[in-house]
């Protein structure tokens, strides 16, 4: 591994890409927290909105998974 500059760049890039998953984590936490806040204000309306909660989480999570995928591609495919 010593002296392999290309490999070093690759691993640094993988690490940087993994930061993107943190963004997805923030997004998912934001959605879940806001849902909980809304649900505590109006619990009777919460049950009908769980589907929207999951759709929102899925969209936010997808972006994190994209960054994970890019990390995997960098590491194993490039």
């Amino acid at each position: 591994m010593e002296g392999d500059l290309a490999n070093m760049g690759k691993y640094i890039g993988v690490g940087l890409t993994a930061i993107g998953m943190g963004g997805a984590a923030i997004g998912v936490g934001n959605i879940a927290g806001n849902f909980l806040a809304g649900a505590l204000r109006n619990p009777s309306a919460a049950a009908g909105q769980t589907a929207m909660l999951f759709i929102g989480i899925a969209f936010a999570e997808a972006l994190g998974i994209f960054s994970f995928l890019v990390a995997l591609l960098l590491m194993f495919a490039v």
Binding site: A62, I65, L69
Partner: peptide
């Protein structure tokens, strides 16, 4: 996104 979400997760 539909496919990569599932496979990625």
């Amino acid at each position: 996104s539909h496919s990569i979400r599932l496979a990625g997760a």
